[in-house]
Design a protein around this nucleic acid. Structure first.
Length: 828
RNA sequence: GCUCCAGUGGCGGAAUCGGUAGACGCGUUGGACUUAAAAUCCAAUUGGGCGUAUAACCCAGUGCCAGUUCAAGUCUGGCCUGGAGCACCA
């Protein structure tokens, strides 16, 4: 064995061996239990960044740990390879997005292999390839058949300079992330997926996910935004055309209906023109036109100064017969509820602001009897008792919510209503580099889905990427014109492509049967491998990807394609990788290139370091000194092994009873095995795992420093310690340990060795330190025999000279004894 | 504004059940080895009492204020600060 550690040499060597032997191929059939470890697959942007390194290392260590513990582990990787950057690169360099993507995938694949990740490369999926997007299109058609896909006119984020809609996540502070121009709202006919049909079950099933962080679950719950309330219909008494009209409103505060003093409809409210008098027509029209022009930025910059204009008409409050005016104001949102709001200025802060500004009347209907509120300064939104509320006066407001709604239900103008904030998912994009939406528009038959046997609808190659103001796909001469599958007449293909989040909503299912050309996946295989046992990725997907994937799983279950409710059993959201306290970014110039780390220190150092300093869920601050320290540690481990290579026997036998110092080292090894195993099992605390590697290494060095010559027994103990260290480190320092294993004469790969076992009786020190406190403060520590009972411990503590001195002349009130640990003497 | 998370030395962080606060590392300081350096090794490193060797001791200390308890970084209540997400959702 070489005396010095040369990571570059040994890493390359073993990477080649693993690749040639397909060392990490996962069989579908196995008598072992399955374990599915998954990292969020990367977008092939060009190069790996440290966030990738962290993500994939965490999952890799989990996969290897589970494999060593007797699981048949599925650990795949793929590419989320559709999306804007490829198309932008194509526009700038006039390259084909596919070529650009392929080159990036090739480079990043090389980097992943350099990191020593244990992927089953035979299951690789690439979403931009026809063998994958064929099935994305097929799944779209299944959802279409189920009635979960529809097309409608909607306001979308539009970047005029780029000539395309943008996803919400591509709008940063109201501006296009690419060209920085202001994003407008534009009405376009778009494709939607009816995720709202699943709002309730998506919310409820969060309770089935104890393995998810509370933060992610509350973010999803807030996003879904369930609220319970009522819908009331208010009759209009003076509609200009004499029509009998009513305005329905949604409210979560039915208890405040006696305090309504006006009603607001959104500027986009569908019946607004019919509700406006001739005198007010012009002012309302101007207000609406202005609202339409408002960009996101302007809406934000108004800082919630509320504006509005009266419509001139009035409603009657069916609860008390009062008449109140109708207004329009943009603080009412057309997409939420009914698009109309009943305003109770005394008990809603927004209504209060508006009423103050326009001098609208206010009426107190809820009070805290102990502490009557002054509603002339601010709205009172706390619980209380109803006043000025007819027969409901005196009732607690919580109780009144139900009672008042029920009253309205009985009289026929109200209903109980549950409302969600979640909106349907807009999936169409006017871009080239995505999966084409598989529908055609027939002159006679209208919208028709492409028959399944005609899939995939391939992306055309004859396109001009330099075109401005429209999707490059529309420049194809071969793509658009086609034949209607129903009547055989002329039809035009849909030129919109799907949001890349559609592609990434089912990739984890495809890994179970990645190469199937007949189906999206085999039902038995997907049911066998899923759900994912451990999913690892960034918190930035807390809502989008994770919500869409949960929806997809449920929808596909309802299509009969699989049999489980939730795709990801456990979720680990890793923190960001920082440098000097801020996020690594090219513009800040504080990035660290993984290639340089591999070259200078090797992948094992990179893996060790990225796990070492912080627990996985927290942000990780990259430091050059830290990398250096990890590199030194691996050198230290290497030296320990190489200088002892001749003394290490893989078939060591521990012959008890051991001598004291040997016994101590053996105990440290057992403690290390136990501690490391528990740390990985409980929340993947890799930072403490690595501390324990260091402690064990230090202990072996210390033990050795005391020895002059090694007896046979010593050699057995040393072998036990070092072999255990290598095995414990094998999930992290994958190359170093493999090399050491072979140099020591090990058969096969260390990565096929079973995990170390520990003896509970040896995983603790031979004596215990009794802590003696006086009035809860530590005053002495005494080495005692483990066998001593409570009375004996008490005696030992009281006998201690230090304790005697401290308790002398004082009254001992109480003595608390915690077995094997502590004695607390309470004195006065 | 609402929701969630976090707050421990110079720094990253550790501390199953409430039971020795600061494991492990980074950095710093001192020392050994060396012609010298690198590498390596040894020692010290929460603050103060205490600008001196050695050994020891005492006090304070986990964002702040209370509380529960023999005992609180850990539990309860109320704040403060920082971060993240949502944001006129009626």
């Amino acid at each position: 064995m070489k005396e010095n550690y040369f990571p570059q040499e040994i890493e390359k060597k073993w990477q080649n061996v693993w690749e040639e032997t397909k060392a990490f191929k996962t069989p579908d059939e196995s008598d072992k239990p399955k374990y599915y470890a998954l990292s969020m697959f990367p977008y092939p942007s060009g190069k790996l960044h440290m966030g990738h390194v962290r993500n994939y290392t965490i999952t890799d260590v989990i996969a290897r740990f589970k494999k060593a513990n007797g699981f048949n582990v599925l650990h795949p990787i793929g590419w989320d390879s559709f999306g804007l950057p490829a198309e932008n690169a194509a526009m700038q360099h006039n390259a084909d997005p596919e070529t650009w993507t392929d080159e990036n995938i090739a480079y990043m694949t090389k980097q992943l292999k350099m990191l020593g990740l244990s992927y089953d490369w035979d299951r690789e999926v690439t979403t931009c390839k026809p063998d994958y997007y064929k099935w994305t299109q097929w799944l779209f058609l299944q959802l279409y058949k189920k009635g979960l896909v529809y097309k409608k006119e909607a306001a979308v984020n539009w970047c005029d300079k780029c000539g395309t809609v943008l996803a919400n996540e591509q709008v940063i502070d109201g501006k296009c992330w690419r060209c920085d121009s202001v994003v407008e709202k534009k009405y376009l006919s778009q494709w939607f997926i009816k995720i709202t049909d699943y709002a309730d079950v998506l919310l409820e099933d969060l309770d089935k996910l104890p393995g998810w962080g509370e933060n992610v679950k509350t973010m999803q719950a807030n996003w879904i935004g369930k609220s319970k309330g009522a819908i009331f219909k208010f009759p209009v008494i003076d509609a200009p055309n004499g029509e009998k009209m009513e305005v329905p409103v949604y409210t979560t505060r039915p208890d405040t209906v006696f305090g309504i003093t006006y009603l607001v409809v959104a500027p986009e409210y569908k019946d607004i023109e019919k509700l406006t008098t001739a005198e007010n027509q012009q002012a309302v029209e101007e207000y609406r036109a202005n609202a339409r022009k408002m960009t996101e930025i302007e809406r934000l910059s108004t800082e919630r100064v509320k504006t509005g204009v009266p419509l001139g008409t009035h409603c009657k409050n069916p609860f008390n017969g009062e008449i109140f005016p109708l207004w329009t104001a943009d603080y009412a949102l057309v997409e939420y509820g009914t698009g109309a709001v009943m305003a109770v200025p005394t008990h809603d802060t927004r209504d209060y602001d508006f009423a103050k500004k326009y001098n609208l009347p206010m009426k107190v209907v809820i009070e805290d009897p102990q502490n009557p509120s002054d509603c002339s300064k601010e709205a009172y939104t706390e619980p209380g008792v109803l006043v000025n509320s007819g027969e409901f006066s005196g009732m607690s407001n919580e109780k009144a919510k139900g009672a008042i709604t029920q009253w309205a239900v009985d009289k026929g103008f109200g209903e109980f209503k549950t409302q969600y904030r979640l909106r349907d998912w807009l999936i169409s994009r006017q871009r080239y580099w995505g999966a084409p939406i598989p529908v055609v528009y027939c002159d006679k038959c209208g919208i028709q889905p492409v028959p399944e046997d005609q899939l995939p609808v391939m992306l055309p190659k004859d396109v001009d990427f330099k075109v401005v103001g429209k999707s490059p796909i529309t420049t194809s001469k071969t793509f658009k014109d086609t034949v209607c599958p129903v009547c055989g007449g002329h039809a035009v293909r849909e030129t919109d492509t799907m949001d890349t989040f559609v592609c990434s909503s089912w990739y984890y299912l495809r890994y179970s049967d990645a190469k199937n050309s007949e189906k999206c996946f085999d039902k038995d295989k997907v049911n066998h491998w899923l759900p994912v046992d451990q999913y690892v990725g960034g918190i930035e997907h807390a809502i989008l990807h994770l919500l869409y994937s949960r929806f997809f799983t449920k929808a596909l279950r309802d299509c009969g394609l699989l049999d489980f409710d939730e795709p990801f059993k456990n979720l680990l959201t890793q923190g960001m990788v920082l440098k000097d306290g801020s996020k690594m970014s090219k513009s800040k110039g504080n990035t660290v290139d993984p290639d340089e780390i591999f070259e200078n220190y090797g992948a094992d150092t990179a893996r060790l370091f990225i796990l070492s300093d912080s627990p996985p869920a927290r942000d990780f601050d990259w430091s050059d000194a830290g990398v250096e320290g990890c590199y030194k540690f691996l050198n230290r481990v290497w030296r320990l092994i190489s200088t002892n290579a001749n003394n290490i026997n893989l078939n060591y036998q521990l012959n008890f009873p051991l001598q004291k110092d040997n016994d101590d080292l053996v105990r440290v090894v057992h403690m290390s095995i136990k501690g490391i195993t528990n740390d990985i099992s409980n929340d993947f605390q890799f930072n403490t795992v690595i501390s324990k590697y260091r402690e064990l290494t230090n202990a072996i060095y210390d033990w050795q420093a005391k020895k002059k010559d090694l007896s046979d027994e010593d050699k057995n103990v040393l072998s036990f310690a070092i072999v255990s260290l290598i095995k414990l480190m094998s999930p992290v320092a994958v190359h170093l340990t493999e090399e050491a294993w072979h140099e020591l004469g090990g058969e096969g790969s260390i990565h096929n060795q079973p995990w170390c076992e520990w003896d509970e009786n040896l995983a603790k020190s031979s004596s215990i330190t009794l802590v003696v406190q006086v009035n809860g403060k530590v005053k002495d520590k005494i080495e005692v025999d483990e066998a001593l009972d409570q009375d004996a411990l008490k005696e030992v503590a009281l006998e201690s000279p230090k304790i005697k001195a401290l308790t002398e002349g004082k009254l001992i009130v109480k003595v608390i004894v915690v077995p094997k640990k502590l004695v607390n003497i309470v004195v006065k």
